[in-house]
Design a protein around this nucleic acid. Structure first.
Length: 740
DNA sequence: CTAGGGTTAG
């Protein structure tokens, strides 16, 4: 009998299993205990089930079993995920005279714990009468595996079978209702919970209800449920805080958190994770830091999700250094943590760092998702980093996000901002699902590249698909019309949306003012501004720049007075006026403007251009010939390009010079504009393919006509992104049609 | 034997 040798609870050696000793005092209990200890002491699970089973058969034959006797063996089967074991137990149970109605609950539970729904369902279906626990177990299983539809179906079946749900049923089934959006049915079950008194008495039911109303977006009703629950706990209150936070009712979230502290309910990692997001949204760094301290004091600073929220909070509050300090303390950042860091850095204008962190993430073999990729792509497109963006595109493909709408709109934005709206369109056409934002991004890409008709066509398609355009859509379409000189189309679209006043913001009006103003319809533009309730600085400045284009000094002076009422000594206005006076030869007034600027300690933004050559970005500043180490070669190339351009008819446009100087000096000044230097550099370095340059200001008339001719001279496309839009120079003309 | 809440995006 060596194989039955075991250590009993009191330490004595015992060579005979209790059942063999026919111990009538508690023999059953002893047998169960024996099986348990056998199960835990066994080294080889395989043999353990087998031997236990043989013992069980002995017990059954001796009629020494209750359903309880099977528990240790069931536990063993669960540990080993042994469905065949469960089936043997069922057979044995039936043989011992236990009907499935009696053993079913345990079997269903064990089977579900083994992850085997099929067998559980089979046992369930065999039962003619089912204990409430059986229903609950199955429903909970479906909820846990996000099979909400099956959960609800089972719940309905339960009701039709006249089985009343209890607190367990209700606390899980509400999640399925919110998941499926079954609000009406959910409310009926809520009513049932009220009738059964479970809404107030059971905090599990209460928090499930709060969570459900929160998911339906009904925070007010969630509040009402919470108020009725008798004994409020962390989970209940946290569910409501989460609701506020996700709905953007951030002030409410912080308030609920504070009252939770007053009620002496201890917040935990979940609570911290959500309330910190609200602090971030509110840019409430005071409460944010306070909560950070509380989190450390309560010992909940280590769970990853709460650390991620902390990181996000600091990033939203633009405290990049603090956020990096938090990040450094995180031992194993996951996908979400990295994504939060990368997107936060991009939002704070730290694109280079964001991309470095993106590479670090890849190095650590943390998989990116569509959130991560769209953030990394936005980092690239903000700086028009084409090569870097191409590499990220490679990663997008590698992880199978080519057809994803989030990563996709990042790619569309990237190609759009790098001047390749055709590549952007290729991405757009492969998306598996498009929504308003995909359309907006694509329309905006066309808009900034001056492809007005394409943008309008897409807009029309969007309407035909029954998609509701939003304010960004309208702005992109208007911008497209503006950049392509499609004034009548733009006015028509604007008028059709004007009835829908909510859609139109100051930005829309600014776009229209720019459009009309540039077309010389200054009075109409001014009438539009007067229509706006609160015309802002940008609107007036837009009209002012139209005055500058058309050299309407008188009107400009009137507008300047208006602007100075809102913003005395506004920098942009002074620069515009100075340039207007310069182009109309009023040099005295130019000096006045400049001295005023000096008084205000304002400095004009230096004009700069960037060009990417061999994956390296080179910077050029207007008039600064010695910024670059190869300035001699650059100048040599530039002179040659100017000479060749002149052969083809280029003449300097001296009205672009806003300084009073000799004519030859004006010419020299024009020759040293930053975009000319950048192009000369790219030509000297013999860039393959297109030349792409980026400017911080708008391209001037002189450079524009020069670049047109140069594109023919070197027989290459030159793409220039200025502060507003793209110009594609090809074979002597520009995509903007000389209208910008 | 069965139950409730969290972090990232265009």
């Amino acid at each position: 009998m060596g194989r039955y040798e075991l250590q009993t609870g009191d330490g004595r050696r015992n060579n005979t299993p209790p059942v063999m000793r026919r111990d009538y005092n508690g023999g059953l209990i002893a047998f169960s205990r024996f099986l348990s200890s056998f199960a835990t002491k066994s080294c080889s699970p395989e043999s353990s089930i087998h031997s236990q089973f043989r013992l069980l058969c002995v017990a059954c034959d001796s009629s020494l079993t209750t359903t309880h006797t099977f528990s240790p063996l069931l536990r063993q089967c669960i540990d080993e995920r042994s469905i065949s074991g469960l089936k043997k137990i069922q057979t044995q149970m039936l043989k011992s005279g236990f009907p499935v109605e009696l053993s079913g609950s345990k079997l269903v539970d064990a089977s579900l714990k083994c992850g085997e729904i099929g067998y559980a369902r089979q046992v369930f279906d065999e039962m003619r009468e089912r204990h409430i626990v059986t229903w609950n177990s199955l429903i909970a299983y479906f909820i846990k595996h996000r099979r909400s539809k099956e959960a609800v179906e089972l719940y309905r079946l339960m009701i039709t079978n006249n089985v009343l749900p209890d607190e367990y049923t209700l606390s899980s089934v509400f999640k399925a209702f919110s998941d499926l959006g079954l609000e009406k049915e959910a409310r009926r079950s809520h009513g049932l919970a009220v009738i059964l008194g479970l809404e107030v008495s059971n905090v599990f039911v209460g928090s499930a209800l709060v969570d459900m109303y929160v998911k339906f977006g009904k925070t007010r009703e969630a509040e009402l449920v919470l108020d009725r629950v008798e004994e409020k706990d962390v989970v209940l209150i946290t569910a409501l805080i989460v609701g506020y936070s996700q709905k953007g009712e951030d002030t409410e979230a912080v308030k609920a958190f504070q009252s939770m502290l007053v009620e002496k309910v201890q917040p935990n990692e979940y609570t911290f994770a959500s309330v910190l997001i609200s602090c971030g949204n509110l840019k409430d760094i005071g409460n944010g830091k306070l909560i950070h301290g509380l989190m450390i004091k309560s010992g909940f600073e280590s769970p990853l999700a709460s650390q991620t929220s902390l990181l996000t909070m600091y990033l939203r509050c633009s405290l990049v250094d603090d956020s990096l300090r938090v990040f450094k303390c995180i031992e194993y950042p996951n996908q979400v943590t990295w994504t939060s860091l990368i997107s936060g850095l991009v939002q704070n204008g730290r694109e280079e760092m964001a991309l470095t962190e993106f590479r670090n993430m890849m190095r650590d073999s943390v998989k990116p998702n569509s959130f991560t990729l769209s953030s990394a792509l936005r980092g690239c497109s903000n700086l028009a980093m084409f090569e870097e963006g191409r590499q990220v595109h490679g990663i997008v493909s590698k992880y199978g996000f080519d057809r994803d709408k989030y990563a996709g709109s990042g790619l569309i934005d990237l190609y759009g901002k790098c001047g390749y709206s055709d590549m952007a369109r290729l991405v757009f056409d492969t998306l598996s699902e498009v929504d308003v934002i995909s359309f907006n991004t694509m329309i905006y890409s066309y808009a900034q590249n001056g492809f007005g008709h394409e943008a309008l066509e897409l807009f029309e398609r969007m309407i035909n698909l029954g998609m509701r355009p939003n304010d960004v859509t309208v702005l992109s379409v208007l911008l497209a019309c503006n950049n392509a000189g499609l004034i009548e189309e733009g006015c028509a679209i604007f008028d059709s949306f004007r009835k829908d006043k909510i859609m139109l913001t100051n930005d829309h009006y600014a776009c229209m003012v720019d459009m009309l103003g540039r077309a010389g319809r200054l009075e109409e533009a001014e009438m539009l501004i007067n229509e706006v309730i609160n015309p802002d600085l940008v609107l007036w400045r837009t009209l002012l720049s139209a005055c500058k284009i058309h050299r309407k000094v008188e009107m400009a002076e009137l507008i300047t007075r208006k602007i100075f009422e809102i913003a005395p000594g506004d920098e942009g206005t002074l620069i515009l006026m100075s340039n207007l006076y310069a182009s109309t030869g009023k040099w005295n007034r130019v000096i006045e403007m400049k001295s005023e600027m000096k008084e205000m300690r304002l400095k004009k933004n230096p004009a700069m251009s960037w060009v990417e050559v061999d994956r390296e970005t080179h910077t050029f500043m207007a008039g600064d010939l010695f910024l670059h180490p190869n300035s001699e070669k650059v100048l040599e190339t530039l002179e040659e390009l100017i000479r060749k351009a002149k052969d083809l008819g280029y003449v300097e446009d001296k009205s672009c010079v806003y300084q009073d100087m000799e004519e030859t000096a004006k010419e020299r000044s024009l020759h040293q504009h930053s975009e000319k230097l950048a192009i000369a550099f790219a030509v000297w370095r013999n860039v393959g393919g297109n030349i792409r340059i980026l400017k911080n200001l708008r391209v001037c008339v002189d450079c524009h006509s020069w670049i047109k001719i140069v594109s023919r001279v070197i027989n290459r496309e030159i793409i220039c992104r200025d502060s507003k839009r793209f110009h594609h120079f090809r074979d002597g003309s520009c995509s903007c049609g000389d209208y910008w």
